[in-house]
């Protein structure tokens, strides 16, 4: 543990230290010291306060946090819906935040797609499925013939388990699960390599959830997709993600491999989140002790907190005395 290396979390120039094992993996997306600010002057609010993480090719990276933690803002900032006010976003080593070349811009649109939370609100009620699914394609490629477009739409619909006939229908004719599939088809038609899924299943019923999760895993296997999975529900996160970053008030408090994070959560906020996950076992659930997180427990006046790599690939946000406590806890758990 003594070899753990620390880095300041807020500095945009922070060199991301990767462990030997992770170096072998190709970094697809890299977020460095991202800041997103809304409003100005007295109403200025910083929703994302210096967030850095890497997403490796082919993995599912989870962003977990409560509402208002900034997890959605990060997703939207990557896809450039919200401008960032500090730091940078690199996609395959190329900067895609701020002003970029026209060619890069097209590449980003093609390669990074988003699936939205509420399938009831994210589809144009007055457009047919055909138009909704094809819109991105026609915007980027104006020379498509009608036949090519139709082929692409039919293929995308089949890929998500819908019938090609559905192309001529309107969104209101579909159930929630089918609508979410249309949302996925709309992202897939661009043939992206990276998909940001913002709470894709929270608005769905339990049984439909399973269908959409399975569909997403299948597509990942078939096409080697990389996902950024944003959600507040850690039970779903555990099932689908490879690594998780827990975010609170615009700061990542802990980042680790999913199983490691669940086995050995260190930051008190992570512990509170995990303890709140409902367990489908009445005996365990009725004796479960809920951990409550009190943000006032941190005393950052004397020692400033920073992101510390406490074991390879496991980062936690804290100041020197806290990190010492986390180390002790880790040793206790491993005994």
């Amino acid at each position: 543990m003594s070899t753990a290396i620390t880095r300041p979390s807020s500095s945009a120039a922070a060199n991301v230290v990767t462990t030997v094992r992770q170096k072998e993996r190709e970094t697809l997306l890299s977020v460095r010291g991202m800041r997103v600010t809304f409003g100005a002057g007295r109403r200025r609010f910083e929703a994302v306060r210096g967030v850095s993480f890497d997403v490796y090719k082919g993995e599912t990276f989870g962003l977990a946090g409560e509402s208002g933690s900034g997890k959605t803002t990060i997703g939207r900032a990557i896809i450039r819906v919200n401008p960032i006010s500090g730091g940078e976003v690199l996609f395959r080593g190329e900067r895609i935040s701020g002003r970029v070349k026209r060619k890069t811009d097209g590449g980003v649109v093609r390669n990074i797609q988003m699936i939205f939370q509420d399938p009831m609100a994210s589809l144009n009620e007055r457009a047919k499925v055909d138009y909704i699914v094809a819109e991105g394609l026609t915007n980027l490629n104006r020379h498509l013939t009608a036949a090519q477009r139709q082929d692409a739409v039919h293929k995308a619909l089949l890929d998500v388990g819908l019938l090609p006939e559905f192309a001529s229908r309107f969104p209101h004719e579909f159930s929630g699960g089918q609508r979410q599939r249309i949302g996925i088809a709309r992202a897939l038609i661009m043939n992206p390599s990276f998909i940001i899924a913002d709470e894709p299943i929270s608005a769905l019923d339990v049984s439909i959830r399973a269908q959409v999760l399975n569909l997403m895993s299948r597509l990942q296997k078939e096409r080697g997709l990389t996902y950024l999975f944003i959600a507040h529900d850690l039970s779903v996160m555990r099932f689908i993600t490879d690594r998780i970053a827990v975010i609170r008030q615009g700061i990542i408090v802990e980042l680790a491999n999913t199983e490691r994070l669940f086995e050995n959560p260190l930051h008190p906020y992570t512990r509170a989140l995990i303890s709140a996950v409902p367990v489908p076992n009445p005996v365990v659930e009725k004796t479960k002790r809920l951990e409550v997180y009190d943000p006032n427990m941190h005393d950052y006046a004397k020692f400033k907190p920073e992101m510390v790599e406490i074991e390879p690939g496991h980062w936690v946000f804290g100041n020197a005395p806290e990190v010492e406590g986390y180390r002790k806890r880790m040793e206790r758990v491993s005994l």
Partner: peptide, 29 residues
Amino acid sequence: FFDPRHPYTWALLSSLPQLGTKKQDLYAI
């Protein structure tokens, strides 16, 4: 939870992500 008898209850329980195994399909109705 421990002794469900109706297949629909089985299906509902099996589709909980808490009971899923990673890298395998979750049971879907």
